[in-house]
Nucleic acid binder design. Structure first.
Lengths: 341, 341
DNA sequence: TTCTCTGCTGTGAACGCTCCCATACCGGCG
DNA sequence: CGCCGGTATGGGAGCGTTCACAGCAGAGAA
């Protein structure tokens, strides 16, 4: 590697060609898979690349190929949620790494306000990224539709609620997860099982509630309206939710909470009310976020496979960029038993 | 805005020129500040841009200017820390927003392993970003030196410990913050004040310890070695640290903890030991992270102005990219009194 | 008038790459 | 022998921009 220290003009494909005694074309072919290149030339070019410290100029390449070899990670949540929810971070990390394995940089984009959203939509649709990983649990999200209609490859995390949209997504099996957790609570002998749902304009909120109701119905237990209160995934809404549950159903013996963060709020309220967990009331969360371990007692929860979700999102997006038709991917959740049940 | 639906060739500067009845050059001048352009032409071009939905092709621009109009956000911590520490997220968000205001995308880069570090260094030094925001509290970080020597504009968050390095950085005033907190504990009448430090190979760890010691010395209190234990900013290390403190100094009446996360660990240990906070032992944290509010009792802490830090990092980096010489920026911290003292 | 200066405009080069076409070689087949 | 298909290579064209330069008009000075 030459060119130590000071800012010199970086080597171009020309320099490599000269150094290797071949033409630009041959170097380019080596760079792009090495088809129609003799082993001798192949070797000479690779040596020359090593000697010159050549790195392809992605701008020049993008200019002609029309691809940018980068993807956007778009967050359309209002900002606060980003920080309250550890899942975003895990997802972000997973996606960055999965993309790095393909040598694709990730552009982080936040579109909290309407203004930002317009700017970013414009940026994306004008070809500055090859595709978009969309993280936004809330529905009614115009960005997804816009981008999708503009033909931008797009993969969402979680099912977009938009009616009949053909947007690919990767999600955990919320309904089955909720079913498993509810069955688990039943298997402990609990019968007065309440739930604190997520926001009902999100697929996660809807599906988890559905799973809960299904299992209770199958077990022949009346699904009492007073057993169901809804939250917004925040800790505080967990506290409030539990207060309402206790008021409406004094003989409550278990709660299925649609997120760990809310579950922590539920624990707080139960403790304040003098109910022991899990003796008096069993509590099951959802996500297996760090919050689940940080609480006391540690939360029983449904583990969402975020590492696999991010890997799948990247895989599906790259396939879509490659021109394949892609479908939804649903990944199974896993019950993690801890102290709270 | 034409070009709805299907994938058409996006308009180029040529199309805009034709539409506006001027030349490429004039359009380009409008795009880049509008100097030497008559008001009439200016107006015609802007109208044409609006009509065609033109967006500049950044690849073509970068190819000739040599700038990429994007910056990297480089994280060299081992991965886990990223998630344990809420500060990173706040920083990331702040930087993304500050950059967005300049229409500069942020490329997120994780370099946890040696391999990744080489790849990313290579990527950066070959001009794919104009500058780097570096987040890595630990010292002995070769990346910073490498990039800096290669002439890449670089701003670190927190002071890099590297000897005599000329790297610009933005940091909170750790020492003064520690002094304030220690004074606060003294003002409550506490005299057996322990501390759980951060890692002593980080500037934050060192400075906060120094501030603590200074104030005790100034108050004429002997700085007992047994009062000082060190942690690694993790919650667990806070628990362990507090255990050691209690063992070594049974009559402990206050603890200054170098991070909120560790402070939560300290609270856990104190509760287990039956010590009441703040009655028996006052606890002061550092960061004012969400963890400070989530704990019970809520933590008194030193607020680090992360919003201003990220804004300053971006400002300094852009100045550096613009060719200015830049220096370090130190921002004041602020005492936030809550229940734990 | 003539010359200069200033504001504004158009145009031919690049920038570094990939694409495509022309060419050349080789072995095998009719 | 001529012709073919497959492999390998070189080089021109062009991607969409900015930059440098040349040119032109009009105002003011000589």
């Amino acid at each position: 590697m030459t060119n130590t220290g000071g800012r010199r003009r970086p080597p171009t494909i020309h320099d490599v060609a000269r150094e290797a005694g071949v033409s630009r074309g041959t170097v380019s072919r080596v760079l792009n898979g090495g088809h129609y290149v003799s082993p001798a030339a192949q070797e000479a070019v690779n040596a020359a690349i090593r000697r010159t410290g050549y790195v392809v100029n992605r701008h020049a390449r993008s200019l002609i190929t029309g691809r940018s070899d980068s993807v956007g990670f778009l967050l359309t949540e209002p900002q606060e949620k980003f920080f309250e929810d550890p899942n975003f971070n895990i997802l972000l990390r997973g996606c960055t790494q999965a993309l790095a394995a393909h040598d694709i940089p990730l552009l982080l984009m936040l579109a909290g306000t309407e203004d930002e959203r317009r700017r970013i939509t414009r940026y994306i649709t004008s070809g500055h990224v090859d595709g978009v990983l969309l993280v936004s649990s809330h529905s009614g999200n115009p960005v997804a539709e816009e981008l999708s209609e503009a033909g931008v490859p797009l993969v969402a995390c979680g099912k977009p609620i938009g009616l009949g949209s053909k947007i690919s997504y990767v999600a955990a099996d919320d309904r089955e997860g909720a079913r498993d957790m509810t069955r688990h609570l039943l298997s402990l002998g609990r019968r007065r099982i309440g739930t604190v749902t997520g926001p009902l304009d999100t697929p996660g909120g809807v599906e988890r509630l559905a799973g809960y109701k299904e299992v209770l119905a199958e077990a022949g237990i009346e699904v009492d309206d007073r057993l169901v209160v809804s939250g917004d995934y925040s800790r505080l809404s967990g506290e409030k939710g539990a207060e309402r549950l206790l008021a409406q159903v004094p003989d409550l013996d278990a709660v299925f909470v649609a997120s760990d963060l809310m579950a922590r709020g539920v624990l707080t309220t139960l403790e304040r009310a003098g109910r022991h967990v899990p003796e008096d009331v069993a509590v099951g969360g959802f996500d297996d976020s760090p919050a689940a371990l940080a609480s006391s007692p540690e939360l029983t929860t449904m583990r969402q496979p975020f590492d696999r979700i991010s890997a799948e999102m990247v895989r599906v997006l790259l396939a879509q960029i490659g021109g394949e038709d892609t479908a939804a991917v649903i990944l199974p959740t896993e019950l993690v038993k801890r102290e709270s049940t």
